[in-house]
């Protein structure tokens, strides 16, 4: 009833694709968190809630009968707008208290989760599949959507490099990362840079949530499961997108390999445990990459 067991080559190809696409998905999920942590030195623990917001944007777009791809810009704008409010009213007073910022954003995550529940109900929501089916990659049939996720990750990575290297905003943000006091002394409006950065980070998180919808259940708690993994990856990556890509590839790869050859249950905690060990051995993680 099914093709005969796959050949060894095909199996290795699948493993390779699994590793790369898993890393890509982790990268997409974690970019928003990294953007905020890199510039603001704040952990946005409401990150999971923003993923959820993005996914519900996809639901709303579906309900309105729009093209499912329209969910991507809608999610980015919604996420960024909510992010702007959050920065202004919750995060701004807490820059000097980073641990309290973790807690306040965690609380915000609870609030957003409950508001979504009150608005949409607890049920699993239906979203239209963006790219169904499989494609043939060197003789191995593989999920088209996961391949698309790889492309999306690369696009986000390149887009962000351009933003940081090639625009005025990026230059200012880098100045803030390196030396905020100096940046302020040079006349940069650091307050505004923080605000815009937080908005972009939240926008990216919501975008990631939309991109997740074909791969995961859409319900009010969906984001929490992704939170700890992203948090760990960002701690390891520090401030650099290249380091994040490396962390996703290494830790995500380890997750796939442990899941494939040892046990998926151990695979489920691989990222968290490895990240903790990496940080113990080298407190700066991969940030020197």
């Amino acid at each position: 009833m099914m093709a005969p067991p796959h050949s060894k080559e095909s199996r290795q190809m699948t493993l390779l694709l699994d590793i790369i696409t898993t890393a890509a998905i982790l990268f997409i999920i974690a970019t928003g968190l990294l953007t905020i942590f890199g510039v603001l030195k704040i952990i946005n623990f409401a990150h999971g809630a923003w993923l959820t917001v993005g996914a519900y944007c996809a639901v709303a777009v579906g309900d309105l009968g729009w093209n499912p791809w329209a969910a991507l810009p809608v999610a980015f704008v919604t996420g960024a707008a909510l992010g702007g409010l959050t920065e202004r009213f919750i995060v701004r007073p807490l820059y000097a208290r980073p641990l309290d910022a973790i807690l306040a954003t965690w609380g915000l995550g609870i609030i957003i989760g409950q508001l979504i529940t009150l608005g949409f109900g607890r049920d699993v929501q239906f979203t239209k599949a963006l790219l169904p089916g499989t494609a043939d990659v060197f003789g191995t049939s593989y999920s088209v959507y996961r391949l698309f996720a790889l492309a999306a990750a690369i696009a986000i990575g390149l887009g962000f490099s351009w933003l940081m290297e090639g625009t005025r905003l990026g230059l200012s943000a880098r100045a803030v990362i390196m030396n905020e006091a100096l940046a302020r002394a040079l006349g940069l409006d650091t307050r505004r840079i923080r605000w815009v950065t937080f908005m972009i980070g939240c926008g990216l998180a919501a975008l990631a949530g939309t991109l997740l919808t074909p791969l995961t259940s859409v319900d009010p708690n969906m984001g929490v499961a992704w939170l700890v993994g992203s948090f760990m990856l960002v701690m390891v990556a520090g401030q650099s997108f290249a380091a994040l890509a490396l962390a996703c590839l290494l830790l995500g790869g380890a997750q796939v390999i442990v899941s494939t050859y040892v046990s998926p249950i151990l695979g489920g905690i691989t990222v968290a445990v490895l990240a903790a060990v990496v940080l113990r051995i080298s407190p700066k993680g991969f940030s020197r990459v």
Binding site: M1, M2, A3, P4, P5, H6, S10, R11, T14, L15, D18, T21, T22, I25, V124, R146, L215, T216, S217, V218, D219, N221, M222, A225, W226, Q255, V256, S259, T260, P264, G267, G268
Partner: peptide
């Protein structure tokens, strides 16, 4: 858990005739 990919790859490699699943209700199932 959110990523079933390695398990699905194993399933495809196994060449099994049929699949039986029993996940937690709701989210993991979807």
């Amino acid at each position: 858990g959110t990523d079933w990919t390695p398990i699905i790859s194993k399933l495809k490699a196994s060449g099994a005739d049929a699949l039986i699943t029993s996940t937690a209700g709701g989210a993991p199932n979807v």
